[in-house]
């Protein structure tokens, strides 16, 4: 379980987080969304011990991130946005090093590496140097590395950024499997459909504050079911409707070029914050 209270972070004169309050249940798949610079990565950095909060508190399964830092770090695995595998080393060596950093015994490390390589389906690349792997494989190795010490919480910071759609779907499937095995997942993403597909609840972050927090279905239901985009003079207006018939009546009454589609989480964010997530 993740519990965050009044968390603030200032970088010199910039307030990156302006007081975050949040609870994520054990075993939940939670998505943390927002535009660039909204504070998503800062939150993850604070929770995983990479940055210090300016004020506020956070606990991971009851361990305070500063007072019980070592115990708190053991609770979480981190897959950062940038690939940070040791490219000089092989897949096996990267996982083994992580196990050593988390004080696992040799026997535990060997068993876990075998298990994880099978789990993420790259057992045949065990002794490949990381620099020879594709972007998608590197991401999977990063997930395996983060899972090496069997964390109860997995932080995924933009885990599919830069990957092509088919590989992205494989990563989604892997994330679902990890969550179904009981791990809490805290996910940040730019891909709205990723959050819609994976998350039980989402929080929208804007300029260091949470502006909405609910299940994707509930958030979207507040707007309607159908979204009608109308392009006028290079600008786009969107209207929301509960039924398709209602939207069609609107099209017949108005002039212009229309596009009818289902409401998504991007619409919710635009409606709340007045800007796009991307």
């Amino acid at each position: 379980m993740i519990r965050i209270q009044k968390l603030k972070k200032n970088y010199k004169n910039v307030a990156a987080l302006k007081g975050i309050d949040l609870e994520v249940d054990g075993g939940e798949l939670f998505a943390y969304l927002g535009p660039n610079g909204s504070g998503k990565t800062t939150t993850i950095k604070i929770l995983t011990g990479l940055a210090k909060p300016s004020s506020g508190d956070a606990t991971l399964h009851g361990f305070h991130i500063e007072r019980d830092a070592m115990q708190a770090k053991r609770q979480c695995g981190l897959v950062p946005q940038t690939i940070n595998l040791d490219h000089e080393l092989t897949v096996f060596e990267n996982l083994d090093l992580h196990g050593r950093l988390f004080h696992m015994s040799r026997g535990e490390r060997m068993d876990r590496i075998d298990e994880l390589l099978e789990y993420i389906e790259i057992a045949d690349r065990r002794n490949s140097p990381v620099k020879q792997l594709s972007g998608g494989l590197k991401r999977r190795v990063m997930v395996a590395r983060a899972l090496m010490h069997s964390p109860r919480i997995l932080f995924l910071d933009e885990p599919t950024v830069g990957l092509d759609p088919s590989i992205r779907r494989r990563i989604w499937s892997l994330i679902k499997r990890i969550q179904q095995a009981g791990t809490t997942i805290f996910l940040t993403t730019h891909y709205i459909e990723e959050a819609e597909f994976l998350a039980k609840r989402v929080a929208f972050l804007d300029e260091g504050r949470i502006v909405a927090l609910d299940s994707p279905q509930n958030l979207m239901a507040r707007l309607g079911v159908w979204a009608l985009d109308r392009v006028t003079d290079g600008d786009m207006e969107t209207a929301y409707f509960q039924s398709r018939e209602e939207a069609n009546r609107h099209i017949n009454e108005q002039k212009g070029s229309f596009s009818l589609r289902r409401v998504n989480l991007e619409d919710v964010f635009i409606a709340i914050a007045g800007k796009r997530v991307l």
Binding site: T48, R74, C76, L78, H98, L101, F102
Partner: peptide, 17 residues
């Protein structure tokens, strides 16, 4: 190289060491 190029320093910082 580990810190600025491969960013492995983060991996060390996130570990309980």
């Amino acid at each position: 190289i580990a810190r600025f190029y491969w960013r492995i320093f983060e991996e060390f910082q996130a570990a309980p060491i």
